[in-house]
Write a protein that binds this DNA or RNA. Structure first.
Lengths: 274, 274
DNA sequence: CTTGGTTGTTCTATATATTGAATAGCACTC
DNA sequence: GAGTGCTATTCAATATATAGAACAACCAAG
């Protein structure tokens, strides 16, 4: 069972986005790409159109355009479409010019080695979700498998508490989002709010088996600029194992890594100004 | 100096694609994404429009749509656009359901270990280019750095000779493409044709310092179906080092790995037929 | 402070992308 | 072999995305 879940992008959502935008074809194209990404096997025109609430002919034109751009592959025999390798090229280009990754990776590697935990670097995307952009596996212990590019709802687990703590969102917004989350051991909203306050004073957040039973997650926010944190460093591991290798030390290491990263990222910006 | 080069996608090309397509916004969007990928730093609306020959207002709408889809990031302060992490999500999804990668990776790892070479798995995209989709570094020697997602012109180096040898393209097509290639030590078209013939009879191709002086590249084709090869396994290394660790053995290993891979990939297809 | 040359953004007429029905093909069942 | 239900695809009318100019906001130089 895979853990990640997106804000269910329904036909309704797509329809609204398409209406508002001045370039609806692009919203449709993105929806098609996401659908093909989710799907286990290649899909035909009708299946895609039905799933996304598109007109088949429009959907066909979208697919042809995407195939021309090598973002989608087309099998002439089966008339099925799937994602194509062109998306890889874009991803590499993004990774290349992303200083967060370059700076975070060695820090994550060191922490993973020291504490035998699986370390993640995540990028926050408002209250919608966060995206895993860097990973370091400890190698020895059994890993909690997550992959680069995975998306999680914004307020879940330890990082969710950080986002809530340092993002100054209204309580109404938070509660609305909170109510849609799925946890193994869901905290009440009151409990969660208290943990968020604690995170605000401590500078990091902990999830002790709420999101996944038996798994402890620690998260510390990273800033690229003043305002809401843009990223977070995350440590995950089996609760008992993390306790044995020293949870307080891990928390300290994580927080100081996150702080040094924030300094470097903000510093680079000011270097551009000169 | 980076080696890769794309078929220079000029404004002309884009203009033609846009005209032909029934969904021009998508071609524009793809062009914008590629441009942002190439660019070292974030770009403004005008710069993008100028570079791609787009109308600024249209360009703005494209960018806004892409930003809505989290494929492009927008900095409200500087009004600059760049690639966003959404492209990572798509790439991961592509990698997940790609059996070539799953099957090729262990073979590449073994060959890289045995021969101290940098191994690549590439996917061919017609006569336009090929894309690196899997990598295994030997770890010990200093690596010839290439990254997943890199694009190379189709007919370059050893893999180019394989594509020409097993793709049954007309000589006119080949010569047109061949003439645009950049090599360190360019072969004449006649020499190259001879090497292509050799590759056809041997079942693999070698590039001895043509593409990059001092670097030897060996490539063996992989088929996913009858017809043109869809992929290739590639070994690269310093010429002298490869000779020392046994070039004939490397060639044998590469060819047999490619053959076994072809069998598995085609076998899956025939399994679908039953 | 004004001027000149940028930039990003809004606005509206018109060329055109999108729609939904009609067409064409393919694989079954009867 | 005709019929049934599915596909993918084409086509022409119309709703609309786009182009180009006008606008606004900024910065640097005089």
């Amino acid at each position: 069972m895979t853990r990640q879940q997106h804000a269910a992008s329904t036909d309704q959502d797509l329809a609204r986005t398409v209406k508002r935008s001045k370039a609806p074809a692009i919203s449709r194209a993105a929806a098609v790409l996401r659908l093909l990404g989710k799907s286990e096997n290649p899909l035909g025109v009708q299946a895609i159109a039905r799933e996304l609430g598109l007109v088949p002919s429009t959907c066909l034109y979208v697919l042809r355009a995407l195939a021309d751009e090598e973002l989608v592959s087309f099998d002439p025999d089966t008339k099925r479409y799937a994602l194509e390798a062109g998306v890889l090229t874009l991803a590499r280009q993004w990774l290349r010019r992303n200083q967060f990754n370059d700076l975070a990776q060695p820090l994550l590697d060191r922490l993973a080695q020291t504490f035998g935990a699986t370390m993640l670097g995540v990028q926050t995307m408002g209250l919608d979700h966060m995206i895993v952009v860097a990973i370091s596996q400890s190698g020895q212990s059994f890993q909690l498998s997550t992959q680069i590019g995975s998306r999680f709802p914004a307020l879940i687990s330890a990082t969710g508490r950080c986002i809530a703590a340092f993002g100054d969102y209204s309580e109404a917004e938070l509660e609305a989002r909170f109510s849609t989350l799925r946890w193994d051991e869901p905290p009440t909203f009151a409990e969660w709010k208290q943990q968020v306050s604690l995170a605000r004073t401590q500078g990091f957040a902990v999830d002790q088996g709420n999101y996944i039973s038996g798994v402890t997650v620690v998260s510390a926010p990273v800033w690229k600029a003043r305002g809401k944190p843009s990223h977070a460093l995350v440590a995950t591991g089996i609760g008992s194992a993390l306790k044995r290798s020293g949870l307080p030390e891990l928390q300290d290491g994580l927080v100081s890594a996150a702080r040094s990263l924030s300094n470097q990222l903000c510093g680079d910006v000011s270097a551009d100004w000169t």
